[in-house]
Design a protein around this nucleic acid. Structure first.
Lengths: 335, 335
DNA sequence: AATGATGATGGAATCGTTTCCATGAGCACT
DNA sequence: AGTGCTCATGGAAACGATTCCATCATCATT
C-alpha cells in the first residue's frame, strides 16, 4: 500500500556528513559549546540535508513533552476565546504547540483532562481552574509547572501553602467593580443584583466586599455554565425581586441572558433596569441599547500567563491586570 | 533543589511483578492475544502499581505522536470557536488531545504552523485551509491524515488528484444562500451585495452562481481577516453604491461590521438596507434589529471532521451539512 | 619539563514503549 | 512416533534525541 518512502533524516546522518559524532551535532544544534569550524560544518550538513530534529526523540529523552496545555471552561465564550488567543499568540513566538482542553467548569472533567495531560508528560499547564484545591495541589507537587489564569483556586486547609505558590494572572475585578458600583450608586441605585456563574467566587467576593452595607445577599444569584441556566437565573431574579433597579452580569453569557430575559419579561433597559456586564464583547455595542461594560483584558491575561509558564524566569506570585468601565447606554437613573 | 522523587512506574516494573516479559505486558495492555491467566496477572500487577503507560515511549516507537492538530483562521470568531468546540468534544471521547493553531487566514503562518506539527510528528490534521494547494498537497503526499473543515482548497493543476482525495466537512452554503437570495428577491431586491473575507472562495462562488443574471460583480467586496478591514469593506461598499438595497455578510464578523457601518453612515436597517448574515451567533437576536441569518452547524462541522480523522474507517469524500435561513427582522421590502 | 586547568570531542547509555523473531509447548493428523 | 500447525511467550532490537563520561589536545603555570 504505502511505499517505504525516504527514511527520515536523523541526527546520525548529519553527524556522518559533517564527519563528527552525534553528540557534537546535538550540542551545536542546541547551543552548546563547539569550535567555530565544527559548528559551521555541522550547520552546513544540517541545512544540506534539510534536517529537522524529531520532537519525539527529544521528548522521550527529556521525559517531558514540549508544548503547553491550556484548560478553559468554555471556548465558545468570547472571553475565553480571547484568552486562548492570547496564549496562542505568545506560545507561537516560542514555537511551542498548545493543547487545549475544555473543562465545562466541571471538576471531574477537569481532573480527567489533567490525567490525560499527565499521560502525555505535559509539564506546563495554564488553567482557568474549576476543580478543588486537592487536585491542583497534587499536580503542583508532582512538579508540574502550573499557572492560573482569570481565577485561582482558593487555598484551603493544608494545601494553602502549595497553592499560594502558583503564579496567577488575573484581571482586577475589584477595581472594575468598584467603579461600576460607584457609577450605579451615583445614579441613585441601591438595590443592585449580581448574576454569577458557579466558580466565580472571586468576583462574587469582590462584589460583596465593594457593596458593603448595600449588599442584599438575596440579590446575588448563581447559574451553571449553560446558556439556559444563565437565562433561568436572570429571569428568576427579575421576577422574584421587582424592587431591583440595577444588575451586574458577571460575564458575557450572563449579560446576554439578562438582556434576553429582560426583553421577555418586558423589563425595559435602562428605563426599568440598569445593566452592566463584565467583559466587553463586540456585540455589546450592537446590542439595543448598547451595553455599559466592564472591559477585561482577556487576551493580555492569556498572553501574560503564557509568558509566565514559558519564560519560567523569576516568577512573580501573581499579576493583576486593570479593568475598565466603558459607559454606553444601558444604565439610567433610578426611577 | 527538586528531590529525585519516586521513579516512574514503567512497563518493566509491571512485567517483573507479574512474572512475565515486557512484551507480554505490552500485548495484554494493547489488546493482543494472551492466555486468560497471564492476562489477569498482568492486569492485576498494573492496577496494583497504578501503572500509566508513557505516551512518550509509545510515540517514539510508533514514529507518530498521538492527538490531533486543528488549524483555524481565528479562534476569536464565534463560528470557529464553535467549530473548535465540536472537534474538542469528539476528540475527548477518544481521549485524544487536541493541539490548536491559529492561521489568521494567512498562507505563510499556516505553513509555519504545519511545519511545527511535522516536527512534532503529528500525523492527523483538521484544517480550515488558507494556504495554497501546493503546500497541502505536499502534506498529504507525506502521508499525513488531513481532513478539511468548513472549506477545502481548490484543486489546481497537477495536485488536483491529490487534493480531491482529502475528505472535507462543509456546510452547504449553496442551499442556504439560495434560500436567502430567493427570500430577498421575493421582497423585491435586485441589487444585492456580498461582503466576503479573503479565502471565502467557495461561498463567493456559490453567491455568484445563485445570483445568476442579477449578479453585479462590483457589489461583491473582500475584506482581510481583521475587524477593521471588515468595517472598511462594508463602509466602502455602502458609500460607493447608494443603489444597494440588500447585502449578505459572509460571516459574523462581516455582519457585525455591516451593522456598525450602517449605523455610522445613517443607513437604516431594514428600512434602507436589508441584511442577512452568515452564521447564527447568540447576539444576532440581541442586535437591533434582530438579524436574519443563515445558520451554520459549526459545531457539527467540527465534530464530524474529528470523527473522520479519528475513526479513519472507510472515508467518504466529503460531507455537506445543511444550513438554515432564520428570519428575524433585518430584512424588509425594497423601497 | 612536569603538572594542572580548560575545552572540544565522540562513544555509549538512556528514556519507555512496541514489535520482530525465535523458542517451546501442546495438539491433531498421518 | 513423526510431522506440522497453532499458540503463548520473552529477549532483544528498534525509535531519535540528549547527556554523562572518558579521552585527548592545547596551553599556562610552577
Amino acid at each position: 500500500m504505502s511505499t517505504p518512502g525516504p527514511r527520515r533524516i536523523t541526527i546520525k546522518d548529519v553527524a556522518e556528513l559533517a564527519g563528527v559524532g552525534v553528540a557534537t551535532v546535538s550540542r551545536v544544534l542546541s547551543g552548546g559549546s563547539a569550535s567555530a569550524e565544527t559548528r559551521e560544518r555541522v550547520l552546513d550538513a544540517a541545512t544540506k540535508l534539510d534536517y529537522r530534529p524529531s520532537a519525539l526523540g527529544r521528548n522521550l529523552r527529556q521525559q517531558r513533552s514540549g508544548g503547553v496545555a491550556l484548560l478553559v471552561p468554555d471556548i465558545t465564550d468570547g472571553f475565553y476565546a480571547r484568552l486562548c488567543d492570547g496564549v496562542l499568540s505568545c506560545a507561537r513566538s516560542y514555537r511551542e504547540p498548545v493543547t487545549i482542553g475544555v473543562t465545562g467548569d466541571d471538576a471531574e472533567q477537569e481532573a480527567d483532562l489533567v490525567g490525560g495531560l499527565l499521560e502525555q508528560s505535559m509539564d506546563r499547564i495554564i488553567a482557568v481552574p474549576s476543580g478543588d484545591g486537592e487536585m491542583w495541589a497534587s499536580v503542583v507537587r508532582a512538579g508540574l509547572n502550573v499557572v492560573f489564569a482569570d481565577r485561582r483556586v482558593w487555598s484551603a486547609g493544608q494545601h494553602a501553602r502549595t497553592l499560594d505558590e502558583v503564579p496567577a494572572v488575573l484581571s482586577d475585578d475589584r477595581s472594575g467593580l468598584r467603579t461600576a458600583i460607584e457609577y450605579l450608586t451615583g445614579l441613585g441605585h441601591r438595590k443592585i443584583g449580581f448574576l454569577a456563574r458557579q466558580g466565580m467566587n472571586q468576583r462574587v467576593a469582590a462584589f460583596r466586599e465593594v457593596m458593603g452595607d448595600l449588599l442584599d445577599e438575596d440579590l446575588v444569584v448563581f447559574a451553571r455554565a449553560s446558556r439556559d441556566s444563565a437565562y433561568a437565573a436572570a429571569a428568576g431574579l427579575f421576577q422574584r425581586r421587582a424592587d431591583l433597579t440595577a444588575v451586574i452580569a458577571g460575564g458575557n453569557m450572563l449579560g446576554e441572558a439578562a438582556v434576553l430575559a429582560a426583553r421577555e419579561l418586558y423589563v425595559r433597559i435602562p428605563r426599568d433596569l440598569s445593566l452592566i456586564m463584565f467583559d466587553d464583547v463586540p456585540w455589546a455595542e450592537l446590542c439595543s441599547p448598547p451595553l455599559t461594560v466592564i472591559a477585561q483584558p482577556a487576551s493580555d491575561v492569556g498572553y501574560r500567563a503564557a509568558e509566565l509558564v514559558l519564560r519560567h524566569g523569576r516568577r512573580p506570585r501573581t499579576v493583576s491586570l486593570p479593568t475598565e468601565l466603558i459607559v454606553r447606554s444601558s444604565c439610567g437613573p433610578r426611577r
